[in-house]
Structures are given as structure tokens and as C-alpha cells.
Simulated assay, not measured.
Amino acid sequence: MMTLTKYGIREWGVGLVAAVVLLAGCCWLGAAGHPGWGAGVGVVVVVLFLALAAFFRNPSRRLPEDPRQLASPADGVVRDIGEVEDFNFPPFNGRAVRIGIFLSVLNVHVNRTPAELEVESKYYREGEFLDARHPECAVRNEAMTIAGTAKAGDVRFPLAIRQISGKIARKIVCPVDPGRTLRRGEVYGMIKFGSRTELYLPVDRFDIKVGIGDKVRGGETVVAAIRQESAK
């Protein structure tokens, strides 16, 4: 099932009102003896509104059946996978493996939690608006990070998700505060118009199931799984 996210009410709501007004104008053009102009402009208006609405789409997704598997926090393409030596966002403290996902303007832009997550910290970083594919965007761009204790199966571990603005994206939506528990696969926010999402996991406790260049779907594609020795 496809719905529109509530995080885009202002944009697609205003767009709908504008489209209705413009289509009324198209009808007037047709009645005034310019049916070709009226039909042509009407088609353009409808296409533009559908494109706007599509950006705020929120499709239903099927979570991985194995509770020990973590689903992608976003739609897009995996741009990089690497280790971060000193990642300190309580309760995360130390080395982490980072999976970076690039979202184009054509992707679904809502963010989802890879596993059940008790949010313990939230941090906003002011920054630049480099292209989300730029190698320095992860450290220089505006960003929002939430971190906490996650649960996958019977295993608990620190987990963090970072939303990063891009050259076009200028609005991070994250109405989540410490103390809240997010369900596995729950939509918790979005980044508007092109961006990057990063997932941080403990080093040596997960098998990474994706590679650079892989396309992923938020809430559905398995990006990592708890190692058997960690699940014991």
C-alpha cells in the first residue's frame, strides 16, 4: 500500500491547493475558446503535482523475517562501508562500522529504524550543504544523529542513525526525543530532496550483508545480521 508521509503535509498540501486552482484556470481557458492551451497546461500541472507527491510517498515494506537481521534505514545506493575509530554518541562509545547510503531525489525519503531502538541521545550538527555524494559531506554537512540501545532477537547493542543534508536537501525532519522507543521498521523522520543516511553498528558483532553500489530499500533490505557467536 502506498501513502503520503505526514512529514510532507505542508508541501503536498499546498501543492494540491495550487494544482486545483490552476486546473480551474485550465477549465476557464477551455471554456474561453482555448481548449488546446487548457489541456496542455492541465497535463503539466497534474504531472508536476504527481512528481511532488511521489517524493513524499511512504510505501509499506515487509520486514526481514529473521529478527536478528537489520533492515536498511533508507532507500538508495550504498556509497561506502568503513570503520570509525572514535564514535561517541551515548550509549555508543568507541569503534563502529558505518554504512553510508545515498538517496537521490527519485528515492523514497522517509527513514526507518533497522531494529527496535530505545533512543538515548540526539545531536544536531550545523554544517554545509555539499552534494551528498561528496567524500567530505559526512563530516562537513548539516546532520542529525540519534543513538540508543537496539534489540535484535535477544541481543542488545548500541546503534546510531545519522541523517545528513545534501546540496538540494535543506530540511532534516526528526521528531524523536530521548526516552522514546522506536519499533523495528518504524518511520521516524525524513530528509527532504536528496540526502545521505548513515547506520552505525558495533565492530565485530555483525556480518555486513551489502556491498558498495548495492541498491537498498528502507525497512526491507537486509544490511547486516548478528553473528552467531554474538547471539549466544
Rank of each mutant, 00 (worst) to 15 (best):
T5G: 14
Y7K: 01
Y7A: 03
G8Q: 01
I9A: 11
E11A: 15
E11F: 08
G13I: 01
V14Q: 08
V17T: 14
A18R: 03
A18T: 13
A19E: 06
V20M: 14
V20L: 15
L22V: 14
G30S: 09
A31E: 12
A32Y: 09
A32K: 14
A32N: 13
G33Q: 07
G33T: 08
H34F: 12
G36M: 13
A39G: 08
A39N: 07
V43N: 04
V45Y: 10
V47R: 06
L48G: 04
L48D: 07
F49M: 12
A51G: 13
L52G: 04
A54L: 14
P59Y: 11
R61M: 02
L63Y: 11
P64T: 10
P64G: 12
E65V: 13
E65Y: 08
E65R: 15
D66P: 04
A74I: 00
G76N: 08
V77Q: 13
V77D: 06
R79N: 06
E85P: 04
D86L: 10
F87S: 00
F87R: 02
F89C: 06
N93M: 10
N93R: 15
G94W: 10
G94K: 10
G94R: 09
R95G: 12
A96S: 13
G100F: 00
G100Q: 06
L103Y: 03
L103D: 04
S104A: 09
L106W: 10
N107E: 11
V110N: 01
N111E: 11
N111A: 12
A115R: 00
E116M: 06
E116A: 13
L117N: 01
L117F: 02
E118W: 06
V119A: 07
E126K: 12
F129P: 02
L130N: 09
R133T: 07
H134T: 03
P135D: 05
C137M: 05
V139F: 13
R140W: 06
R140T: 10
E142D: 05
A143C: 07
T145A: 06
A147W: 00
T149Q: 07
A152F: 01
A152S: 08
R156M: 05
F157H: 01
P158W: 02
P158K: 04
A160E: 05
I161L: 04
I161K: 00
Q163H: 09
Q163S: 04
A169N: 04
A169W: 01
I172V: 15
P175T: 09
P178N: 12
P178S: 11
R180T: 15
L182E: 10
L182A: 10
R184S: 06
G185C: 11
G185N: 05
E186N: 11
E186T: 12
E186L: 11
E186V: 11
Y188N: 08
M190I: 11
R196P: 03
T197S: 13
Y200W: 12
Y200P: 03
P202A: 05
I208R: 03
K209A: 15
K209C: 13
K209N: 09
G211S: 14
I212A: 05
K215L: 05
R217W: 08
G218M: 00
G219S: 08
E220P: 01
R227L: 14
Q228H: 11
Q228N: 15
E229S: 14
S230T: 15
A231I: 09
K232A: 12
